[in-house]
Every structure is written in structure tokens, then in C-alpha cells.
Simulated scan of single mutants.
Amino acid sequence: MSNVAFKQVGVWIDHGKAHLIGFHKGKAEWIETIDSPYESIKRVDGEVKDMTRFSQNPEHASNNEYKRHNISQNEINEYLRLMEQKLQPYDDILLFGPGTMKEKMRNRLRDNKAFSGKWLSVETSDKLTENQLLAFVRDFYVKATP
């Protein structure tokens, strides 16, 4: 990583991690990778089955599902808050990746007044290698600049 102060950044984001790639003077450069605190499948020690004590039927679920949902929503909010802090210094932000996390991030940034004057763009992409990530960001910003 060089000491270039990037103003344009590409962020490949999904529920597991985010890759920040800076763009400056026609070159894309790796900035950092941020791991998400979100875990899609987890087992809490001492947790019981998702059934009520009166029925073995899984349709009669306990409140474990409610607790798990709240925990996962809190983890996603923590992840988005961390990403907001990381994206604060950039003027042009490209969010791309598979799934819905890029839209969640865009909506959160639009609601934040600190990002009101910044340029946001969302693109869909698959999982990419490091070289493909760099090429995706470089190609996007080269096409976007007149």
C-alpha cells in the first residue's frame, strides 16, 4: 500500500467481508480487507432445540429464532457502522458484489448526512479474485471519467 490519498474507492462487499480498493490516476490499488462480525450459522452453548416444551413439532418454535434474528441484525448494523467510518474520507464510492449487502450499505450511506455530497454507485458482480477486483474498479472509474 502506498501513501496515495485516494478520493475514489471501490468496495466489494458481502455479509462476510469487504475489500477496499482505491483508484488514483488510472491505477487501482488494494487498501484493506475488513472482516464482518456477522456469522450466518452459529450455535450458542447451552442453547436448546427450536421447539417448545409441549410439542416436538418444529412448527411450534420457541423464541430462539427471535433471539438469533436480533443478534444477526445487531451484527449487520455493527458491520455497516464500521464500513461507514472507513468510507468517510472518500468522495466517490463504488459498491459492488453479490447479494444484498451492497444495497443495505448504499441505503445506510444515503441516510447519513455526512455522505450527502458524495457520489455513490452500485454494481452487481460475482466473487472475484484480487486481480479481477482491481480490474473491475479500474475499468469502472476509467469509463466514468471523461
Rank of each mutant, 00 (worst) to 15 (best):
E39K: 15
S40G: 08
I41S: 08
K42Q: 11
R43M: 05
D45P: 13
D45R: 11
D45H: 08
G46W: 01
E47C: 03
E47D: 06
V48W: 00
V48A: 10
K49C: 01
K49D: 12
K49N: 05
K49T: 05
D50K: 08
D50N: 15
D50F: 06
D50Y: 06
D50Q: 13
M51Q: 12
M51F: 00
M51A: 04
R53E: 08
R53L: 06
R53V: 07
R53S: 09
S55M: 05
S55K: 05
Q56K: 14
Q56A: 09
Q56V: 03
N57F: 03
N57H: 11
N57K: 14
E59C: 08
H60G: 01
H60N: 14
A61T: 15
A61C: 09
S62E: 03
N63D: 14
N63H: 11
N64Q: 14
Y66M: 06
Y66N: 06
Y66W: 07
R68N: 09
H69Q: 08
H69S: 12
N70L: 14
N70K: 13
N70F: 04
N70C: 11
N70M: 12
I71T: 13
S72K: 15
Q73C: 09
Q73R: 12
N74Q: 15
E75T: 01
N77V: 03
E78Y: 04
L80S: 05
L80N: 03
R81K: 15
R81D: 15
L82D: 08
L82G: 00
L82A: 09
M83L: 15
E84R: 13
E84T: 09
Q85Y: 03
K86T: 10
K86W: 02
L87H: 00
L87D: 01
Q88H: 12
Q88C: 07
Q88F: 12
Q88W: 04
P89E: 04
P89C: 04
P89S: 05
P89A: 06
Y90Q: 04
Y90I: 03
D92G: 04
D92Y: 13
D92W: 09
I93V: 13
L94R: 05
L95M: 04
L95Q: 02
F96A: 06
G97R: 02
G97Q: 09
G97F: 09
G97N: 07
P98G: 10
P98M: 11
G99E: 11
G99A: 12
G99H: 10
K102W: 09
K102H: 10
E103G: 02
R108P: 01
R108N: 10
L109Y: 03
L109R: 03
L109S: 09
R110S: 11
R110W: 03
D111L: 12
N112L: 07
N112P: 10
K113I: 08
K113F: 03
